[in-house]
Design a protein around this nucleic acid. Structure first.
Lengths: 200, 200
DNA sequence: AGGTCTAAATTTAGAGCTAAACGTAGCAGG
DNA sequence: CCTGCTACGTTTAGCTCTAAATTTAGACCT
């Protein structure tokens, strides 16, 4: 209620898809974005929007939901990510900061900060690696181990729940396509970073 | 410290996929994550990982790449997102802050801050809405308009390029699946937010 | 041995975001 | 009328990230 008058469109053109006349398309926000660019700037290269924007929005929804789930348990997503990477690596639950950065796809500075925060709460410990000079090893503590055990299933279960509107075969197809795309993009970007240094 | 011994594989088992004996699978990092959970904690509900983690990593790669592309042009991604939403809405390039938040999927506070930053650089202007009390309207300035025109094609073109390792039919399939998933998750989360208020 | 060089991690500056507290102003009921 | 409610935007506190500057400590060369 509230909003008594201005019902239909302060929003500019919300339903801007305009004329997909027939069936009653139940509003596809991502498609609308591409359509709006076409309408406003004919020739805009919109081909990537259907994939990139959907991925972006899904990541946002999953991420926000995960944050809320974990907040109830008193943990934050960055810390759980760190603990999970260590937990998954198996005994002795130890990795170099470098390796942590690679697996979590974050910069070295971010690793330092995550580890410092987690160390403050006694979830991990830090020390020089034996055989390798200049490298620091991070190890899960007993407390850290407990936190993982207490939260990981919750998070994963919740996410499986969010996916179960999609039929299993569809999920399998999607998994395969995402996997192929991820491998390709990763490869491309890895190369680019090396080749692309000074040009363009 | 003191973790002597273990020289050979600090990385835990990087290639932890272990025995997918035959073909020489070219290392699938996302699959490895699920496999590692299974190995370390049999029974962990890993079914969502293939989709959720891939989406997360792709979003990170696309996002980082976009940030780098825009940095060269002296813009940041949050600002371009704001300007784009306004640009796409068509003349008079004006939206309420509420609507901006909905379209960009960010909180009201984040909208305020984005608008404040953009206003400082004269990319948008802000003022009370005509017919509706209590609402603030944001409008693209000429400068803001120029920034969009100068950068949007670059960004979208770059992203299309990143996708073009995936065959067009595959892209179409992926688009359709993501679209279905997004609609479902969005619907579910919208409901949840209302029903879930005090329980659990 | 002494002076670079270099590879590693850490620290810092600054952008962004969320959640929650706040300010404000129509509006509705007594 | 006055009071409290409600819908809106803004501000603030705190977290997290990136990029760049800084620190640290072997390694290499002569």
């Amino acid at each position: 209620m509230a909003r008594e008058n201005g019902p239909q469109d302060e929003d500019g053109r919300q339903g801007e898809a305009g004329r997909q006349g027939e069936g009653r398309v139940p509003s596809d926000p991502v498609r609308d974005i591409a359509a709006a660019w076409e309408r406003e700037r004919p020739g805009t290269p919109v081909s990537s929007i259907g994939i990139v924007t959907s991925i972006w929005q899904l990541a946002k929804l999953f991420g926000d939901d995960r944050r809320r789930t974990l907040a109830r348990a008193g943990v934050d997503t960055a810390t759980l990510d760190l603990l999970s990477v260590l937990r998954r690596s198996g005994p002795p639950y130890t990795l170099s900061t470098r390796e942590i950065g690679r697996r979590s796809m974050i910069t070295a500075g971010a690793v330092s900060q995550r580890v410092a925060r987690a160390e403050r709460e006694n979830l991990v410990s830090r020390g020089p690696a034996q055989g390798r000079p200049r490298t620091v090893e991070v190890t899960l503590t007993a407390t850290g181990h407990e936190v993982v055990e207490a939260t990981v299933d919750q998070v994963l279960h919740r996410e499986a729940e969010l996916l179960d509107g999609l039929a299993p075969e569809k999920q399998a197809e999607l998994t395969a396509l995402l996997r192929a795309l991820l491998a390709d993009v990763q490869h491309r970007l890895g190369d680019d970073r090396l080749t692309h240094v000074g040009e363009d």
